[in-house]
Computed example of a mutant assay.
Amino acid sequence: MLKVLVPVNGSKHALDAVRHAAFMYRDKCVSDIVLLNVQEPLEAGRAAAFHRLDALRRLEARDGEAALQEARRILEDAGTPYVAQVKVGDIARTIADTAAANDCDAIVMGTAARSPMGALFAGHLSNRLLRLSRVPVTLVR
C-alpha cells in the first residue's frame, strides 16, 4: 500500500485532497498519510526588522497548526491515522523534500483556486513540484 503526503494550506481545495486521501485509506489503497503545512519564512519580509527569529518561528508554527486544524478533524472523523508536520521554507522544494524524507510513494494535493490569479499561482506551484518531486503527484479537483 501507499504512503502519501498531503500538503495542506487550509483552503477548500487542500481539504478536498485530504478527503480524497481519507477515501483512499478507507478503500485500503493507502496505508499512511503525512499532512504537511509549509510556511514561507517570515524573515524574508519586513517582519524580521521588528521581531526576533524565535518569535517569527513561533508565529509560523502557530499559523501552520491553524492551517492543519480542519484537515486533522477530517481525518480523525474518518478514523484515519496520520502524522502532521509544519515546516518552513520554499513551498514546492519543502513538499518534495518532505515526501522524500518520509519515504512517501505519492503526493496528493488540491488543484488551483478558480480565480485567474489563484490558478496561475497554484499552477506554478504544481508545475514546480512536478519537476522537483521524485514521486507521482496527484491533483484533486
Rank of each mutant, 00 (worst) to 15 (best):
Leu36Glu: 06
Arg62Glu: 14
Val6Asn: 00
Glu65Tyr: 05
Leu35Asn: 10
Leu36Arg: 11
Ile33Trp: 03
Tyr25Asn: 02
Gly45Asp: 09
Asp63Met: 12
Leu36Asp: 05
Val8Thr: 08
Ala66Asn: 04
Leu59Ile: 13
Arg73Gln: 12
Ala47Lys: 04
Ala48Thr: 05
Leu15Tyr: 07
Leu15Lys: 10
Arg58Leu: 13
Val4Glu: 00
Asn9Tyr: 01
Cys29Asp: 13
Val38His: 00
Leu53Phe: 14
Leu59His: 07
Val18Ile: 10
Asn37Glu: 02
Ala22Pro: 05
Glu40Pro: 07
His13Gly: 13
Ala21Leu: 08
Ile74Tyr: 02
Ala55His: 13
Ala66Thr: 07
Arg62Leu: 10
Val38Cys: 01
Val38Trp: 00
Ala44Cys: 13
Leu5Arg: 05
Ser11Ile: 08
Pro41Gln: 02
Asp16Lys: 15
Ala48Asp: 02
Pro41Lys: 02
Arg62Cys: 06
Lys28Glu: 15
Ala44Pro: 02
Ser11Arg: 02
Leu68Lys: 04
Asp63Tyr: 12
Leu36Trp: 12
His51Cys: 11
Gly64Phe: 09
Ala71Val: 09
Val38Met: 01
Leu56Lys: 00
Gln69Glu: 10
Val38Arg: 00
Arg57Glu: 15
Leu56Tyr: 06
Val8Ser: 04
Ala14Ser: 15
Ala49Thr: 14
Arg46Gln: 12
Ala66Trp: 01
Ala48Trp: 01
Ala67Cys: 08
Arg57Ile: 09
Asp27Tyr: 12
Asp27Gln: 13
Asp16Leu: 14
Arg73Asn: 08
Phe50Arg: 03
Glu70Thr: 12
Arg72Asn: 07
Gly64Tyr: 05
Arg58Ser: 14
Glu43Cys: 10
Lys28Met: 09
Val30Glu: 01
Ala67Asp: 03
Gly45Cys: 11
Arg46Trp: 14
Arg72Asp: 05
Val18Gln: 03
Lys12Arg: 15
Arg26Trp: 07
Gly45Ala: 11
Asp27Glu: 13
Gln69Ala: 13
Arg57Cys: 04
Arg52Leu: 13
Arg73Val: 10
Leu59Gln: 15
Leu53Pro: 09
Pro7Lys: 01
Glu70Gln: 14
Ala66Met: 04
Val6His: 00
Ile74Gly: 06
Ile33Glu: 02
Arg57Gly: 03
Leu68Gln: 03
Ala17His: 07
Leu42Gln: 00
Phe50Ile: 09
Asn9Gln: 01
Arg26Tyr: 09
Ala14Ile: 05
Met24Arg: 12
Ala49Asn: 14
Arg62Tyr: 11
Ala17Ile: 11
Arg26Met: 06
Gln39Tyr: 07
Arg52Gln: 15
Val34His: 09
Ala66Phe: 03
Ala61Ile: 05
Glu70Met: 04
Ala66Arg: 10
Gln69Ser: 10
Glu43Leu: 11
Leu56Ile: 10
Gly45Arg: 06
Ala22Ile: 06
Gln39Asp: 02
Ala66Pro: 01
Tyr25Ala: 10
Lys12Met: 08
Asp63Trp: 11
Arg58Asp: 15
Gly45Ser: 10
Ala17Phe: 06
Leu68Gly: 07
Leu15Phe: 04
Leu5Asp: 02
Ala22Cys: 04
Val6Pro: 00
His51Val: 09
Leu53Tyr: 15
Ala44Asn: 15
Leu5Met: 04
Pro7Met: 04
Leu35Met: 10
Leu35Thr: 12
Arg62Pro: 00
Ser11Gly: 09
Phe50Val: 13
Ser11Trp: 03
Arg73Thr: 13
Lys28Pro: 02
Tyr25Asp: 00
Arg19Ile: 05
Val30Trp: 01
Arg62Asp: 14
